[in-house]
Simulated assay, not measured.
Amino acid sequence: MAELKIGDYVKGKRFGSFEHDFQGEIEKVYENSVLIHILEFDQADRILVGELNNRAIVRKDDATLAKVKNS
């Protein structure tokens, strides 16, 4: 698995009240999880994403790298 870094664009698996997967940019990396700024999501999850202020903490194992930040 590639090392996740701040600025990487990732896909997050649905969890909790999310009905669908989502995508966004990593804002912070923790030991076993990442804070994702949610940028793309299904409209069915619109209210939940708004309540979470467009952010979610996701286990690293549940975050799939979609695009690497250019250094």
Rank of each mutant, 00 (worst) to 15 (best):
A2I: 12
G24S: 13
Y9W: 08
D8W: 02
A44K: 08
N53S: 12
K69R: 12
Q23W: 03
G7L: 03
G24F: 01
H20S: 14
E19K: 15
E19C: 09
A2N: 12
I36G: 04
F41Q: 00
A56L: 06
N54R: 13
R46C: 05
S71V: 11
N32V: 07
E31R: 04
A56G: 12
T64F: 06
F22A: 06
V10H: 00
E27F: 02
A2K: 14
R14K: 15
G7C: 05
L52Y: 07
L4E: 09
I36N: 05
K67N: 09
V49H: 02
V68W: 05
G24W: 00
A63Q: 00
K5S: 15
K13Y: 06
R55I: 07
N54C: 13
K5P: 07
E3S: 15
D61T: 11
K28L: 09
L65Q: 06
Q43M: 11
E25T: 15
H37F: 09
F41R: 01
K5N: 15
F18H: 03
K11P: 01
E51I: 07
V34H: 00
I47Y: 07
V58D: 01
H37S: 15
A63I: 02
G24E: 01
A44W: 05
E3V: 14
D21P: 02
Y30A: 11
I38F: 05
M1N: 11
K69W: 02
F41Y: 12
E40V: 14
A44G: 09
K69I: 09
G12E: 03
